[in-house]
Every structure is written in structure tokens, then in C-alpha cells.
């Protein structure tokens, strides 16, 4: 085991090259719905259990299933009313199970990136060869069902190996959502390729907010506004990124929709916001700032 993941150098928040987003925007805003499939009876994994209860975990499984049957469609319409496209964090098996959901996203010009095959299959302890096969499955499935090139990665159920980021970069992906160390994009140190970390968020993530922090729905709307107000103000100095990661089974519950939609409309109503996708943010950063950020970064000392 490593003591330090060694994935990035140190770049203090107040001493960076200035980021300018397209159209003079202060903040790049993106919404990342996690469209997932949790298997009723996944194979056992040596390091993580899939369901807290013995199979069949009826409430656990059916709660996730709610997202695809009901929640997704409400969430999609709310985003559409606010003029916000999704960057879908996709368990690619959804292409096979629920092609109707994929088609609705394609029709709206949404982006797809990978969140593994199923949210009940974990990367922990995979060999390099197995993990390559997992990534290739995503590249092929997303291409086949959406016509899109796979650019981004969010590890399935946030499960990793030490090789994960090297492999996604080597296989041609350009951004990752797995690192939570910053409010701006930044270079990731990988063996081959050019990989950018795009701010995703656990703080704004509906799953963490609702099921870990037990935030009430109206308060969720409040914290989204507070997060946005501060990042928007800071974006006057150098462009920031704000992401709202969603899960249709959570945000798509009737009692959570209204407060969320109001917060989304509030953000979309600001003129210096760039309503972007993950790929668009990564591309802009990679082309204009990646090298400058890498050059300005300070080497990380060794922990005693």
C-alpha cells in the first residue's frame, strides 16, 4: 500500500494562473446525474457487501429501481425547464436494461461518461487486465448505444485500485471525477496520457446530503445556493467549477423536487454562468490551462 496516492502536485488556491471560461463566465456549472443499476443479487465481493440486508434486500433494491421507473423522468423535466443538460455518470449496463432512459438523454444532447458497469460491481482488488476489460466495456457500450466517445470516469461505487487513474488515462479518457481536493480543474499525474481532474462534489451530492448528512430537502436547496453564491463571487478572480451530482432515486422523489428545481433555476438565472458538461469543461481546461497549471505547481514533499 502507498502512503500517498501521488496523483497531484501542490498549487495554492490564491496563486494560480487565472482561468477564463467561455463568454466571460465566472463559473462553469455542470449537473451529473448518476444513472445506475444495482443488481438484486450481485456476486459476492471480498471487500464490500452490496446490500446491508440478506438477499433479497427489498427496500434497498426497490429504492434504487425507483430512480429509473419514476425519479429520472421528473429530474429530467426539471433540468430541461432550467435549460441544464446532464453529464450522465452511467452504469453502462443501463444501456441494456433500460434503453428508453438512454434514448431520452441522447435526444436532449446530454453527455455520457462512465460509472462502471453496475453499481454493485466493485473495482477493488481487480487485476490490471480485469480493470482494462471493465474500462473497455464502458468505451464500447457507450459508443454503441450513444455514438459518443468516452471521455470521463467516475469509478463504480467509488471503488478503485492503485492503477485506476493510470489505466483510464492510457485508454484515452480525458477527465476523472474521483478526486475531491479542489474547486478548479487540475492535472492528474498519470503514467501515460493527459488526465484532468474535474471538480465533482460529495458535499453537493444528493446521496451524501440526504443519506449520510441527513439534510432535509429544503435545506438542500439552501446549501446549493450558498455553495453557488460563494463560488460565483470567487469566480470574478479566476473561474471556478460547481457540480451537482444527482441520483434519480433520491432527487426524483416528489417531496425533494421543488426545492431542488428552485435552486437550479436560481443558478441558471445568473448571466455569468457557463452551463457546461464535464467533457466541455475538461476540453477547455486541457487546451488552455493544463500546461500552465502543471508548470505553476509545487512539488509535494515527502511525509516524514
Amino acid at each position: 500500500m502507498k502512503r500517498d496516492p501521488g496523483l497531484y502536485d501542490y498549487l495554492p488556491y490564491d496563486k494560480r494562473p487565472k482561468i477564463e471560461w467561455p463568454g466571460g463566465a465566472r463559473l462553469a456549472f455542470w449537473v451529473a446525474p448518476n444513472i445506475e443499476f444495482y443488481e438484486l443479487e450481485p456476486p459476492k465481493n471480498p471487500t464490500r457487501i452490496s446490500w446491508p440486508r440478506p438477499a433479497p434486500d427489498v427496500p434497498g433494491y426497490s429504492y434504487r429501481d425507483y430512480g429509473n421507473r419514476a425519479g429520472f423522468w421528473r429530474m429530467m423535466e426539471a433540468m430541461e425547464r432550467c435549460g441544464v443538460r446532464g453529464s450522465v455518470s452511467l452504469n453502462v449496463a443501463v444501456c441494456d436494461h433500460h434503453p428508453e432512459v438512454i434514448k431520452a438523454c441522447v435526444e436532449r444532447g446530454w453527455e455520457f461518461y462512465s460509472h462502471g458497469t453496475y453499481n454493485t460491481r466493485y473495482t477493488f482488488n481487480m487485476s490490471e487486465e480485469q480493470e482494462r476489460a471493465l474500462i473497455q466495456d464502458s468505451i464500447d457500450t457507450i459508443k454503441k448505444h450513444t455514438g459518443q466517445r468516452l471521455d470521463g470516469w467516475l469509478a463504480p461505487a467509488l471503488s478503485y485500485t492503485e492503477n485506476t487513474l493510470d489505466l483510464v488515462a492510457e485508454m484515452g479518457l480525458t477527465y476523472v471525477c474521483d478526486l475531491f481536493h479542489d474547486d478548479q480543474p487540475g492535472p492528474v499525474k498519470v503514467k501515460k496520457g493527459r488526465l484532468t481532474s474535474i471538480p465533482y462534489s460529495l458535499e453537493m451530492n444528493d446521496a451524501i446530503s440526504f443519506t449520510v448528512n441527513w439534510v432535509s430537502p429544503r435545506h438542500y436547496g439552501d446549501i446549493i445556493r450558498r455553495q453557488f453564491d460563494r463560488l460565483y463571487a470567487e469566480g470574478a478572480e479566476s473561474g471556478t467549477v460547481m457540480c451537482i451530482p444527482l441520483h434519480p432515486y433520491l432527487i426524483g422523489q416528489p417531496y425533494r423536487m421543488k426545492a431542488f428545481e428552485e435552486a437550479l433555476a436560481y443558478i441558471a438565472g445568473h448571466d455569468k454562468v457557463w452551463l457546461a458538461t464535464g467533457r466541455e469543461i475538461a476540453k477547455h481546461f486541457n487546451e488552455s490551462y493544463y500546461d500552465a497549471f502543471a508548470k505553476a505547481s509545487l512539488p509535494v514533499g515527502e511525509a516524514p
Binding site: 429501481d65 434503453p99 460491481r121 487485476s127 480485469q130
Partner: peptide, 17 residues
């Protein structure tokens, strides 16, 4: 170690699993 069967998906099909 993970068995290669872990990357096989016999119920990956249209509809439910």
C-alpha cells in the same frame, strides 16, 4: 484476487435482472 466470473453478467439484458 477477483475471479474473472466477476466480470460476467448473465442477467445483463433488456428489463429487470
Amino acid at each position: 484476487m477477483i475471479s474473472d466470473d466477476y466480470l460476467k453478467y448473465p442477467r445483463r439484458r433488456y428489463g429487470m435482472d
